[in-house]
């Protein structure tokens, strides 16, 4: 059975559907990119997958014995976080919270895991710095390290590269790609269609036309051709 199976899913706010009748499934090891215009419901879709909000109709079936505390999530930054007095280490460690259950304090292994993930993201020397004083790229790495502490199987990323410069963006994509090769299933929202078709194994396009398929199928499809052309036109 697939990791996630989406059946006839409609999503939106206050029982008004923005996206209707989605059907697709995500298998272990997939790299799924969700693309689409602004306001087409990408973030809503991700929140629905995470059960942060109820679907208008339809079902999300979870397979392969996936538990809630095996999911990592990189959300868009919130206003609250912009002036939050917290050190990098505190934030990364809080990613282990899902593993704790009712246990009040972090175990040695969890602290070790947090150190490892900070090392991996190259933010170890920032561990005692205050989060709000970091640059956008550094903040994003901190949140990704936190998501890595939480994940064992799936990583959901909501525009991980928004506001980052091209060099940091490339590094970020490389990091995510490495994680995918290590066997973590990646579901990512992106504006950056060029990166999406470069890295993803599957693409879900939502908007006026809904498309789901592998990367190559997308490149052949009408929705894909149109969207790619538009983006190229926009950049030129």
């Amino acid at each position: 059975m697939a990791l996630l199976t989406i059946q006839n899913l409609s999503l939106g706010y206050d029982s008004r559907a923005i996206v209707k009748n989605l059907n697709f499934s995500v298998n272990t090891g997939d790299y799924l990119c969700i693309v689409g215009e602004n306001g087409s419901g990408k973030t809503t879709h991700m929140k629905t997958l995470l059960h942060l909000q109820e679907p208008v109709s339809g079902q999300i079936l979870i397979g392969d014995g996936l538990k809630k505390n095996e999911i990592g999530y990189l959300p868009q930054q919130t206003i609250v976080q912009k002036d939050f007095p917290a050190s990098v280490r505190e934030i990364v460690l809080s990613g282990c919270q899902g593993r704790c259950g009712l246990r009040p304090f972090y175990s040695k292994e969890e602290k070790h895991l947090a150190e490892e993930n900070m090392e991996r993201m190259g933010i170890k020397e920032l561990r005692n710095r205050c989060y709000r004083e970091l640059s956008g790229g550094q903040q994003q790495r901190v949140l990704l390290a936190r998501a890595l502490c939480a994940t064992r199987k799936v990583l959901l990323l909501d525009e991980p590269v928004s506001g980052l410069d091209p060099k940091v963006t490339a590094e970020m994509y490389a990091l995510i790609n490495d994680l995918n090769h290590e066997g973590i299933t990646v579901i990512m929202i992106s504006h950056d269609i060029a990166a999406a078709v470069r890295y993803a194994s599957h693409i879900l396009h939502i908007g006026n036309a809904v498309f789901y398929g592998t990367r190559n199928e997308y490149l052949e499809s009408d929705a894909g051709k149109f969207f790619l052309m538009q983006q190229k036109g926009g950049e030129a």
Partner: peptide, 18 residues
């Protein structure tokens, strides 16, 4: 630790099983 996690990012905590 739980109060910290929930204060810093409620959605993340919810999504990851807290």
């Amino acid at each position: 630790n739980k109060i910290f996690a929930v204060t810093f990012d409620e959605n993340f905590s919810k999504a990851t099983g807290t």
